[in-house]
C-alpha cells in the first residue's frame, strides 16, 4: 500500500500571511495539481493534513473551508487526481491542542481512520512543524522550497537527513523514481 501525506498551504497552493480564507484566495502553485494527478495515477493514495488556525481566529469557518477544498478537489480532478481525505486542525497555537502540527494528533487520526501505518510514509511540507509531526510518527518528512521552505533552508534549519526539493513536482518525481526503482 502506497500513501503520501501532503501539507496544503505553501505546498499545493500559494500560502498567505493572512490565511487563505475564501475560494477566490485559493490559488494552486504551478505544477502542483499535475504532480498530485501523476502520483494518484501511479497508484498512490493521497491525504492532506493541514493547520487551519484561521478558523480559531475567526477568519473563516468550517463551511468556507469545505468550499475551498471543494474547489481544490474540482481543479485536481481536471488532472486526474483524487485526494482521499483532508484532515485539518481548527485550533490556534495558544489552544494547546493535540492536533496542530508539530503535534502528531492529525497524523494519528489519519492512521486510525484510514487504518494505515505511517512508518516510512512520505510527508511533504514547507515548515519545520510538518517535518516534526512526520518524525514523531516515524514517517519520512520531505521539505519543499515553496511557501516557507526556502526560508528554512536559508536559515540552515533543515534537520539532518530530510531531503529538500524545489517544489511538489520535484518531490513527486523523486518519490515516483524511487518507487519504480524499488519495484525493479
Amino acid at each position: 500500500m502506497k500513501l503520501v501525506v501532503l501539507d496544503r498551504d505553501g505546498v499545493i497552493n500559494v500560502d498567505s500571511r493572512d490565511y487563505v480564507k475564501s475560494e477566490q484566495e485559493w490559488q494552486a502553485l504551478p505544477g502542483s495539481l499535475d504532480a498530485i494527478g501523476r502520483l494518484y495515477r501511479s497508484g498512490y493514495r493521497i491525504v492532506v493534513v493541514t493547520n487551519q488556525a484561521g478558523i480559531a481566529h475567526g477568519k473563516l469557518n468550517a463551511e468556507i473551508l469545505a468550499a475551498i477544498h471543494q474547489k481544490m478537489l474540482a481543479h485536481l480532478s481536471q488532472y486526474g487526481g483524487v485526494i482521499e481525505a483532508i484532515f485539518f486542525c481548527p485550533h490556534a497555537p495558544e489552544d494547546h491542542c493535540n492536533c496542530r502540527k508539530p503535534k502528531p494528533g492529525l497524523l494519528r487520526e489519519l492512521s486510525r481512520r484510514l487504518r494505515v501505518r505511517l512508518h516510512g510514509v512520505p510527508c511533504i511540507g514547507d515548515k519545520l512543524s510538518d517535518i516534526e509531526a512526520a518524525l514523531a510518527v516515524g514517517a519520512s518528512p520531505i521539505l519543499v522550497r515553496t511557501g516557507h521552505g526556502q526560508a528554512i533552508v536559508d536559515a540552515g534549519e533543515v534537520p539532518h537527513g530530510v531531503p529538500v526539493y524545489a517544489n511538489l513536482r520535484a518531490a513527486v518525481d523523486a518519490i515516483l523514481s524511487q518507487g519504480s526503482a524499488a519495484s525493479r
Binding site: E84, A85, R113
Partner: peptide, 9 residues
C-alpha cells in the same frame, strides 16, 4: 471501489 472524505464522518 475507493472512498474519499472518510475524515468527514
Amino acid at each position: 471501489y475507493q472512498v474519499t472524505g472518510i475524515e468527514n464522518i
